[in-house]
Design a binder for these strands. Structure first.
Lengths: 337, 337
DNA sequence: TTGAAAGCGCTAACAC
DNA sequence: GTGTTAGCGCTTTCAA
C-alpha cells in the first residue's frame, strides 16, 4: 500500500534499477523475459511511478493545460469532454484554468507555464484579449499551443475553429427570409475574432438584402448579468425595437427570453431569435430556439489531437495548422421557421 | 526567456543556492536585505521555479484532482467554478478527470493518485459506484479526500452535500398540494446515495398523503440517451400515465419535455414537473420549469475550502467533516404553481 | 543484455 | 544569517 519505488522493485527482483526502468519503458535493449518478470513484480507490488521524478528528469510532464473563459457554458463544457477523451487515450492529464474573461488572469496563468509545468496548452482567449504577447511569450519558451474557438488573429499558431462568418451569414439570411427587416446582433466583445467574423457575416447578409447597416445593428452587451439583462430589456422596450435578433453567445439567451416575457414581446411574431449555443435545452425553450450549433465535442477532440501531434511528433510545425469544423443551423420555432 | 534555475540566480547574486531558496520561500532565517535582493534579481531574470523539482523534493504538488462523472452538466460545471476560485486563491492547480459514470474508469483514475501525483482529491462518484474500496485505498495511501454531492455512504470521509431528502420531500409535497395523485420519480441509479435520499423523501411525502408507494412510483432510467428518451415516451403514452413527475437529474429534463411534446401531454395540466437542476434556462423553458436548485457554486467552494484545510492543517481530521448546504425549490409554471 | 553512476532542480538538515 | 551537501525517484549515458 505504501509508496513503492523503482529501487525496491529492483531489490525484489535482484537486478539493477536501470534495468527495471528500461524494462518498464519497454526498451528494446532489455530481454523479453526480464521485461515479463519486471512487469509481474511491478503489478504484484502495485508499483506506480512517481510522476514528478520522471518529469524532472525527462522535462516532460504528460500534462496539458486548458485555459478557457468559463466552464459553465455548454460549448466549453462539451469541448472539455472532447479534450479529455483524447487526453485519456494518450495517457495525458488535464489541468483546467478559468480566465473568467480577464486578461490579467489569463496572463498570470500563462506565466506559470514557462517553467515547463505542462507539455502543451489549449486556449480559448478572453474577450479582453486583443494582443497576445503573453501567449507568444509562452510559445517562445517552447510550449506547443493550440487555439480553439476563440483564437488570437495576430498570433501564428495552430487553430481549430468553426465557420463563424458563414454560419452567421446563413443564420442572418434565415432571419431575413422569414421577414425580418430590422435585425440586431447581440455581441459581448468586438475584440474577439469569432465575434468579428460573426458580425461580418451578419452585416454581409444585411448588405445583400439592402438593409442599412450603419445605425445600431450591432449591440455590445457589457457589464454583469443584471446590466446585460437591463440593456436587453431597454432594447425591446424601445418603440423602434428590432424584429429579429442574433444572440452571439449562450449566456445572452436567457436574458433575451426573459426580456420578451417581461415586455410582452412575442417570439417569433414580434421578434425572431437565433442563438449561437449548444444548449441541450434549446428544443424545449418557449418557444424552441433556433440555434447555430457548434461542433463543440469535435472541436475539443480535434484541437487535442492536434496538440498531441505537436507535442509528440518531432519537427511537426504546429503553427501552420488550421482546422475548420462546420457549425449547423438548427431551425426551430423561435425564428418562425 | 530560457529556463533559468535557482543555481543561476545564486551565481548572479554571488550567494549560495540554499540562501536563494530560503529567501524565495520567505524563510525567517534570511535577512530582509538579502530577500529583497534575491527577489529583485528573480523578477528581473524572470525566474520561475521548476514545479517538478520542488514537488519531488517536498512530496507536495500544489495540485488537486477533481473527479466527476460529467462536466456538461450545470451542477458540475458550476461546482468547478467554485472549486477553481478557492484553488486559485490558495495557489493550487486543478486536474480534471471525467469518470463518465464508469466505475472502472473511476478506479483507474484513482489508482494513479497513489503515487503522490496530487495533494488532495475531490470526488463525486459514478452511478455505478457502490463499494468504495478504490477510494479507501487512495485514502489509505495518505491522500486527503472530500466527497461532494455524490458521496459514498460507506466511507468515512469528508462530505459536502445538500439536503437531498428534505428538498425531495418538499418538492413532492409541492406536487401533491397542486393536485398530483400519481406522481413518479425518475432516477438514474439507486446506487447513488443522493438518489436514495431523494427517493426516500419522495416516498415519505407519498406515504403521508396516503398514496400507494409500491407500484412503479420510482422509475429507473437506464441506457444511453435514446433509450432513456424511449423509456420516458412509453411512460407517458401509457394509459395509466403519471400526473406528476420528478426528474432527479438534469439530463432527464429534455427527454421529459420532448416526450410531452410528442405525446401531446400538457405541462402542467396533464403532468406537473419538477426537476433537480441548475439550468439557467429553467425559467425560459416551455413551460418554465420548477426546480430544486442546488447550491452548486457554494458546494464547490465549501468542498475545496475543506480539502485545503485537510491538506494544510496538520492534525486536522477531515474524515469527520460533514457540511450541508441547502437546496431551494424554485416554483414555476411546470408544477402549476 | 545488463549495471553503475551522474544528475534533473530544488529543499532541508546541518555546519559554520 | 549564510553556506555545504545529501538526496527526492527517476532516466540515461556509458561501461562491462
Amino acid at each position: 500500500m505504501s509508496k513503492i519505488t523503482i529501487r525496491e522493485l529492483a531489490k525484489e527482483l535482484g537486478i539493477a534499477v536501470s534495468t527495471v526502468s528500461k524494462a518498464l519503458r519497454d526498451s528494446h535493449e532489455i530481454s523479453s523475459e526480464t521485461k515479463a518478470k519486471v512487469l509481474e513484480v511491478a503489478t504484484r507490488l502495485n508499483y506506480i511511478p512517481n510522476l514528478y521524478a520522471s518529469s524532472l528528469r525527462r522535462q516532460k510532464s504528460r500534462t496539458i493545460a486548458v485555459v478557457i473563459p468559463e466552464v459553465a457554458d455548454s460549448f466549453f463544457s462539451i469541448a472539455i469532454n472532447g479534450i479529455e477523451e483524447v487526453a485519456r487515450e494518450k495517457g495525458y492529464h488535464v489541468l483546467i484554468y478559468l480566465s473568467h474573461e480577464s486578461l490579467a488572469r489569463e496572463t498570470e496563468i500563462l506565466n506559470e507555464f514557462k517553467s515547463g509545468r505542462v507539455d502543451g496548452l489549449m486556449i480559448s482567449v478572453t474577450s479582453e484579449t486583443c494582443s497576445g504577447t503573453h501567449i507568444t511569450e509562452a510559445m517562445n519558451s517552447g510550449l506547443p499551443v493550440v487555439f480553439f474557438d476563440r483564437i488570437c488573429e495576430d498570433i501564428q499558431a495552430a487553430r481549430v475553429i468553426t465557420d463563424d462568418f458563414e454560419s452567421s451569414y446563413t443564420a442572418t439570411r434565415h432571419l431575413l427570409e422569414n421577414g425580418c427587416r430590422q435585425p440586431v446582433f447581440l455581441s459581448i466583445s468586438s475584440n474577439l475574432s469569432i465575434n468579428q467574423k460573426r458580425e461580418a457575416g451578419f452585416l454581409k447578409a444585411l448588405g445583400e438584402a439592402g438593409i442599412q447597416t450603419d445605425k445600431g445593428r450591432i449591440i455590445q452587451c457589457t457589464g454583469n448579468d443584471e446590466e446585460i439583462a437591463m440593456q436587453i430589456l431597454h432594447l425591446l422596450q424601445n418603440p423602434e425595437r428590432p424584429d429579429g435578433l442574433i444572440a452571439s453567445v449562450e449566456k445572452l439567451v436567457p436574458p433575451v427570453y426573459m426580456a420578451c416575457q417581461q415586455t410582452g414581446c412575442r417570439i417569433p411574431e414580434d421578434l425572431r431569435v437565433v442563438g449561437f449555443t449548444n444548449l441541450p435545452a434549446a428544443p424545449i425553450l418557449n418557444p424552441a430556439l433556433t440555434t447555430v450549433t457548434q461542433p463543440a465535442f469535435e472541436i475539443g477532440k480535434t484541437a487535442a489531437a492536434l496538440l498531441f501531434k505537436g507535442i509528440e511528433k518531432a519537427g511537426f510545425d504546429l503553427s501552420k495548422e488550421i482546422q475548420v469544423v462546420r457549425s449547423r443551423l438548427m431551425k426551430r420555432a423561435s425564428s418562425g421557421a
